[in-house]
């Protein structure tokens, strides 16, 4: 859970539009959470979008 690491958070804080920065840095190449995200995706109801009916907005 890299995002909860305060040091990482501090690093990220230095990259916004009104801060001293050199643009966004890519996340770590290794993805320890890849499997958990895949599990999350597999849990999605395949009919979810079919059931999702909205009314027209602006």
């Amino acid at each position: 859970m890299e995002m909860n690491d305060p040091l990482r958070r501090e690093e990220k804080k230095e990259t916004g539009p009104d801060r001293d920065d050199s643009g966004p840095s890519s996340p770590e190449p290794s993805r320890p959470g890849k499997d958990s995200l895949l599990k999350r995706m597999k849990k999605v109801d395949p009919k979810q979008s079919e059931k999702y009916k909205q009314r027209t907005g602006q």
Binding site: M1, M3, P27, E28
Partner: peptide, 13 residues
């Protein structure tokens, strides 16, 4: 989920 795993760029603190 991508945010929680640090897989996307985080602009804001």
């Amino acid at each position: 989920g991508l945010e929680q795993e640090g897989d996307v760029y985080s602009l804001l603190s």
